[in-house]
C-alpha cells in the first residue's frame, strides 16, 4: 500500500474560482417564451377581426368567393393584416408544435425527423402565403367577368 507516499492524487486548490459549465445555447427559449405571449395578444385581435369580417358580416361563409378575396386584397390594410396574421400565426403555431415535439418525442432520431418536417411545412406555407399576398391579381385578364369583383369591369 502506497499510503501517503509519492502517488498523491492531484486535487484542485479549494481557492480556485468555480467555473460554471455552460449548459444552454443562449437565451433562445426565453425569447421564444416572450414571443408566444406578445404574438398571442396581437393574434387575438387579428384573428377575431378576420373571423368577424369573414364569418359574421353579411352572408358569412357563403359570401366568400374569388371576388370577396379580390375586394379585400385590393385594400392595402387587409394585405398588411393578412401578411402579419400569416407570419405571426405560423411562427406562434410552429413554435408551439416544436414545444410539443420536444415534450413527447424522446428518441433523438424521431425528434429530429418531426422537427425537420415541421420546419419544411413552415417554410413552404410562409413562402407560398407571402408570395400569394404580394403577387395576387384581383382582375386576372383571362377569367370570366361574372367570377370577378364588380370593380374589374366598371
Amino acid at each position: 500500500m502506497a499510503h501517503g507516499t509519492a502517488a498523491v492524487a492531484k486535487v484542485d486548490s479549494p481557492r480556485s474560482p468555480y467555473v460554471r459549465r455552460k449548459t444552454t445555447r443562449g437565451n433562445y427559449e426565453l425569447y421564444s417564451w416572450v414571443f408566444m405571449r406578445a404574438s398571442g395578444v396581437v393574434l387575438l385581435v387579428l384573428i377575431f377581426g378576420h373571423l368577424f369580417v369573414n364569418l359574421m358580416v353579411g352572408d358569412g361563409v357563403h359570401a366568400i368567393d374569388f371576388g370577396f378575396v379580390a375586394g379585400k386584397w385590393s385594400n392595402p390594410m387587409w394585405q398588411v393584416w393578412d401578411l402579419l396574421m400569416l407570419w405571426l400565426a405560423m411562427i406562434h403555431g410552429t413554435n408551439g408544435v416544436r414545444t410539443i415535439i420536444n415534450d413527447y418525442a424522446t428518441r433523438d432520431l424521431t425528434r429530429g425527423i418531426l422537427k425537420g418536417l415541421l420546419l419544411l411545412a413552415f417554410t413552404v406555407v410562409v413562402v407560398l402565403g407571402t408570395l400569394v399576398i404580394f403577387t395576387f391579381d384581383p382582375c386576372p385578364p383571362d377569367a370570366p367577368a361574372e367570377l370577378l369583383a364588380s370593380f374589374c369591369t366598371a
Partner: peptide, 11 residues
C-alpha cells in the same frame, strides 16, 4: 393557406 393560395391558380 394552401386553399387560399388557389386564388393564384384561377377564380
Amino acid at each position: 393557406v394552401l386553399d387560399t393560395a388557389l386564388v393564384r391558380v384561377s377564380p
